[in-house]
Write a protein that binds this DNA or RNA. Sequence first.
DNA 1: CACATGACCTAAC
DNA 2: TGTTAGGCCATGT
Length: 93
Amino acid sequence: MKLVGTEFQVKVWSELQKIPYGEVRTYKQIAESIGSPKSSRAVANACAKNPHPPLIPCHRVVRSDGGLGGYSAHGGTSEKMKLLIKESVFPSD
DNA sequence: CACATGACCTAAC
DNA sequence: TGTTAGGCCATGT
């Protein structure tokens, strides 16, 4: 399976796939990983435009404040929260 | 090419 | 501590 899109998106998606189970990365971290620490916004965009939601753990990407951020893939932010809680990454209380 | 959009971040009040 | 304003980047129209 090969992801297709802009270089930026491919880099972001690749980083997302590097996120292991039970771990979360901030948009800023991803931005830094691809060499553009200030592109946190564009990173979020790439996640939102990810072509294969089940193939990319976009739900493991959260804000630097500890917030969830969003989830345009499926179910919405609620589904993302549920997934994070299920992976014990997000406090259920 | 210019404008508008978005799941952001930091600083200031 | 909570809210507001400005900046920053990539993409689509």
